[in-house]
Write a protein that binds this DNA or RNA. Structure first.
Lengths: 231, 231
DNA sequence: CGCGCAATTGAGTTTCGTCAAAATCGGTGG
DNA sequence: CCACCGATTTTGACGAAACTCAATTGCGCG
């Protein structure tokens, strides 16, 4: 299934709730006018594929709400989730400097995105230093994310990695609740089998450091979890 | 030891062997004249530290020869190598958009670098679109590297990860020789103990897929190694 | 030559993966 | 509303892989 929900047409950028943090937050009114008409909104359901590896494409995306996974494949076909994107994360940046997308992007929840044409971004980029700076920040953010994944989610025991994932998925700054996805995806992020993922969560429940409020929705004992994350 | 070998003074950029692939390869003569006087060469011995995490700094670096590791630390103090840099890799890019370095950078072999002032790069960046594009490519390259590390060096069994590391360290395109560093650093890249690293290499020797030519210098049976890397 | 550090090897334990079975969930249709 | 189905999740038993601790070997260097 590469088909998405229908494009929802022109976006209302001026009233965008992400206006401050989204790409283009630093544009002048003139520059903004150039892209504005070319921005479109996309809505994805869980499991929908935004694009695949090596797809040609002409768009950048900003995640408005929801959560997507960025997947790469090993030579033998097993998949590995290399990044999660949410908040105001930008995905598809590699198209600014290359010919193809480098990931497969799949929605893990209902997800809304904005779609920008690369050509327009590139055009503005040549004259607008602020956008340039903004793009560099986005790149650095993606890089920091990838490295954090490496350090937090790929180092240590299964329990430790799981604790770091749960902490990272906390809804807000001072929330203690988080929403988890399938065990298979958990395994693909943390480099473990679905059985180990399941067993680890069960043990957390038994220890009382997580409580399942409703399906796949957990309430964490954050301090305890932070301890586990550093053992 | 944060002390480096003495700065070796002004670089001879015009005759640089990396001229084509180094940062600034796309500069005009005028722009080039601006930075030229500000570029300096650095030489590091194995174990020397270029900079530490959270160090303030005003420089980007290009690796001219040798090999450095980029290290991050877990809350409990254990270290993890998040990237290796060599060839014409640029390090310290995060200083273009932030206040501090995000890694500790340590030489694994005798290493030569060029040092550019961030301020000069930023200045040229505002007028020179080619440099802009070049910088974005560097960022994307670093990101691809980080993700390749995740997929190749952090997925699968110890043997598989080791095989991928050895293949990645091959001297040249069609060389079968590679130079390895300490078992502790190997363990820090592949997320395994020094004992497992040592045992894995010993098994490779017994199987005949690697031969130790001289200390830590191996000749690989590349096809066999590629098979191991995909099992 | 001997010292110190890194690397290797061995033995025992823990963790994790594999395979298989049972339980749970979500959706569908009677 | 409930029974049934497939898919996902959980649990159990076993074996393989990797870690820990400890002892030994090998290497570089004074």
């Amino acid at each position: 299934m590469t088909l998405l929900q229908a494009w929802e047409g022109e976006a209302d950028c001026r009233n965008c709730t992400l206006r401050e943090s989204a790409l283009f937050s630093s544009l002048t009114e003139d520059d903004f006018a150039v892209v504005h008409g070319q921005v479109e909104q996309v809505t994805m359901s869980p499991g929908d594929i935004l694009y695949k590896i090596a797809d040609p494409g002409y768009h950048l995306f900003t995640v408005r709400s929801g959560l997507v996974k960025l997947v790469q494949y090993l030579p033998d076909g097993t998949q590995r989730i290399v990044r999660l994107a949410f908040g105001a994360d930008v995905i598809g940046l590699e198209m600014m400097v290359g010919e193809h997308y480098l990931h497969e992007v799949v929605a893990l929840r209902t997800t809304e995105l904005c779609r920008y044409p690369i050509a327009a971004v590139n055009r503005i980029c040549t004259t607008n230093a602020a956008l340039h700076a903004d793009l560099m920040s986005r790149w650095q953010r993606a890089l920091s994310e990838a490295e954090a994944s490496l350090v937090l989610l790929s180092t240590g025991t299964a329990k430790r990695r799981m604790a770091n994932l749960l902490l990272r998925l906390l809804d807000g700054q001072d929330s203690s609740e988080c929403f988890l996805f399938s065990r298979e995806d958990v395994g693909s992020i943390l480099n473990m089998t679905v059985e180990t993922a399941s067993r680890t969560l069960s043990e957390f429940k038994r220890q009382g450091v997580i409580k399942e409020i409703r399906n796949n929705h957990f309430d964490l004992d954050v301090p305890a979890m932070k301890v586990i994350a550093t053992i």
